[in-house]
Amino acid sequence: MTMRHLGLSIYPDHSNMEEDKKYLELGHKYGFKRIFMSMLEISDNSEDTLEKYREIIQYGNKLGYETFIDLAPQIFTKLGISYQDLKIFHDLGATGLRLDEAFDGETEAMMTYNPYGLIIELNMSNNVDYLNNILSYQASTPFIYGCHNFYPQKGTGLPYDFFIECSKRFKHFGIHSAAFVSSQVGKMGPWNVTDGLPTLEQCRSLPISVQAKLLWATGLIDDVIIGNAYASEDELKALSEVNPYQLELEVEAVSEINEVERTIVNVPQHFRRGDMTSAVVRSTMPRVTYHDEANPAHDNQAEFAYGDVVVGNDDFGVYKNELQIVLEPHSDTRKNKVGTIRKDEQFLLDFIKPWTKFKLVCK
């Protein structure tokens, strides 16, 4: 697995330099590492325009960011440059170029041999044999990344199953990948439609941390980038607290939860038993670790609902202090309800398969 990072987006043709710099500083505070910078809407090739890009990219470089410039074929014409000479982007300080549209495969392959070490990032949001075509021209794969599109118009983002199929094409070859989440407050993007900028349509109205959890839970996305600007500090902070490497779900605790149960929720490295059942997610090691800890009955009379977190009480014999997450409603007085998975995260339970490692955080 490659290292996973957070990114944000800057739109120099629509933004203010000082505000951009403040945004980069705020992202740096919360550990963001990537900048997505759109050059799709550049209006001319004047030195003033390029200087604006250069200044913000190099400011980001000083803060430890890597900048990927989003390009379309017509930009090469506007700038009066060829695909064989990428020096202008190197001089701007960019790490890589994201190609919003496909060329012919041979062109992309040749670009990966540019003498500046610029990474060539491919559009992942088409379920076609695009990547195989490029690789057949003997591209230099260490210099190929993939990045999905984002979708400003409500109702136009990728459906989940299609997103998965597109992403698998890149992950099959171990290509570093990225996708977009959407700020709920940011209003700036490349176009004059501001319905958010996610890759997945189902992410559009979700809290930004839940969007990131979904993308990372697929196991197919390395970098998560905020598509629109400017995200709030609360959103940046929330993203910085998401575990990129394993699913971490928030538990809303019942008032009667005791300290043993709170410890059982928060402390262990949970994993689902390999011999799974459809009724519950079983995390069985706590019953071993906390075998000697008393756990009197409470909150054990009502039927347990989907997403409830329960722990075996003193009446459950060898299963005392086993943690379970309820998948099928049932009743069992030998279990205490200790909390419920946060409502907008419950759909993520589908990602907990046999042997899946996960963490819980009790709020």
Score class of each variant (00 low, 15 high):
Ala302Glu: 15
Val326Met: 11
Tyr290Trp: 02
Lys335Tyr: 00
Ala302Trp: 04
Ala302Arg: 07
Asn336Arg: 07
Val318Phe: 12
Ala294Thr: 03
Asn295Ile: 14
Asn313Val: 15
Thr333Met: 08
Thr340Ser: 06
Asp332Ile: 00
Val326Tyr: 08
Tyr306His: 00
Val326Arg: 06
Tyr319Glu: 09
Asn295Tyr: 13
Gly312Ala: 11
Ala305Lys: 13
His298Cys: 03
Asp314His: 10
Ile341Glu: 01
Arg334Gln: 13
Val338Ala: 04
Gly307Asp: 04
Pro329Asn: 01
Val310Leu: 08
Arg334Thr: 15
Asp292Arg: 14
Pro329His: 00
Val311His: 08
Gln301Gly: 05
Asn295Thr: 15
Val309His: 04
Gln301Lys: 08
His330Asp: 09
Lys320Val: 07
Glu322Met: 10
Asp315Val: 11
Ala297Ile: 03
Val311Trp: 06
Tyr290Pro: 01
Ala294Tyr: 05
Asp299Trp: 03
Lys320Ile: 07
Glu293Trp: 12
His291Gly: 13
Pro329Cys: 04
Asp292Lys: 15
His298Phe: 08
Thr289Met: 08
Glu303Asp: 14
Val326Phe: 11
Pro329Met: 05
Val309Leu: 04
Glu328Ser: 11
Val309Ala: 07
Lys337His: 07
Asn336Asp: 11
Asn336Met: 15
Val310Gly: 02
Gln324Ala: 06
Tyr290Lys: 03
Val318Gly: 09
Ser331Gly: 06
Phe316Tyr: 15
Asn321Tyr: 01
Phe304Ala: 03
Ile325Ala: 06
Gln301Asn: 08
Gln324Leu: 08
Pro329Thr: 00
Thr289Arg: 12
Ala305His: 10
Ala302Met: 10
Gly307Tyr: 11
Phe316Pro: 13
Asp292Ile: 08
Phe316Ala: 11
Leu323Phe: 02
Val326Ser: 07
Phe304Pro: 05
Asp308Cys: 01
Lys320Pro: 12
Gly312Met: 05
Pro296Thr: 08
Val311Thr: 10
Asp299His: 04
Asp292His: 14
Asn313Cys: 15
Glu322Tyr: 06
Lys335Asn: 03
Phe304Arg: 05
Val318Pro: 11
Gln324Cys: 09
His298Arg: 03
Phe316Thr: 13
Val318Arg: 13
Val338His: 05
Lys337Ala: 12
Tyr319Gln: 06
Pro296Phe: 00
Ala294Cys: 05
Ala305Cys: 10
